[in-house]
Design a protein around this nucleic acid. Structure first.
Lengths: 145, 145
DNA sequence: ATACAGATCTTGACAGAGTCAAAACTTCTT
DNA sequence: AAGAAGTTTTGACTCTGTCAAGATCTGTAT
């Protein structure tokens, strides 16, 4: 014992609630899920959950480092449980699918920009944009018509 | 001749309109301007412009590569004319300010993730999150109270 | 067990940024 | 000058997310 989701919450000084457990499970079960998706999954699981509770739970879990928030530009934020390692994301511009990509250069490559100018940097977020194999294939097929 | 804004538009097969010229000038004159800011500047210049026209113009200019869109999460998108070079952005979590940072590793460092898996990648987006010198100073002062 | 304080959730209004659709108006070409 | 296609206006609307206040639940100390 000690690694159950409930213990994980307690360990961080958080109250254990049905909502938080459901949110945690939703994110674990479906990497790269959106807040909206979490609400849906959690709803199915515990019958009902308010939007606010979802956002609150996600925020506190991110703060405690139990989950990670990725914020692709122009798209809703997504959440995942894979934390602690330094990996990036590849997003298909067509279908929106997100996949993990290990960092190309090592452990923390881009964390130090050339000139920090007294900025205090705590995170470097890297997102690769492109098209996934499926969408490339589909584009090819479509243009053949 | 040939490098006037108007010619620039024609060169790309776009109709030359007062709205587009105003938008182009707004972005040139004020790096990292938001869509809202563009609307304001353009309004002052040509008397009136609809929000939709601003968004349309910005979108088409981005598409043609005449300007570049940066979309920090949680903050409105920004536009700049500095295109063609590879640089990233440093965003202050507190005040939202955006500054350019030249790429740490060279010309196009992160454009090739370790494993492309047949993805067709067209852009690597790097965002450094942190706190700017001013906000750091303010935080220090505030806690002294 | 019981009660309490504080943490958490619900509800419902609200905000910012951007999109959609249809009609009116321009620009470019002939 | 005239027409077709490209642009702009207008106004409603969506999508993410936030705020605030009161109701409810959790953990802890009786």
């Amino acid at each position: 014992m000690g690694d159950e989701p409930a213990d994980l919450l307690r360990k961080h000084g958080l109250h254990v609630t049905a909502q938080r457990l459901a949110v945690l499970r939703a994110v674990s079960g479906k990497p790269h899920i959106t807040a909206d998706g979490v609400a849906e999954v959690a709803n199915a699981e515990i019958g009902a959950i308010s939007r606010q509770a979802v956002y609150d739970a996600l925020a506190v879990l991110v703060e405690k480092g139990l989950i990670r928030r990725i914020q692709p530009t122009g798209a809703p934020a997504r959440y995942e449980t894979r934390v602690g390692d330094n990996h990036h994301h590849l997003i298909c511009r067509v279908c929106g699918r997100v996949v993990d990509v290990d960092c190309a250069v090592g452990s923390a490559p881009c964390l130090t920009p050339a000139e920090g100018r007294d900025y205090e940097i705590d995170e470097a977020e890297v997102v690769y944009w492109g098209r996934c194999p499926e969408c490339r294939a589909r584009a090819r097929t479509d243009s053949e018509v």
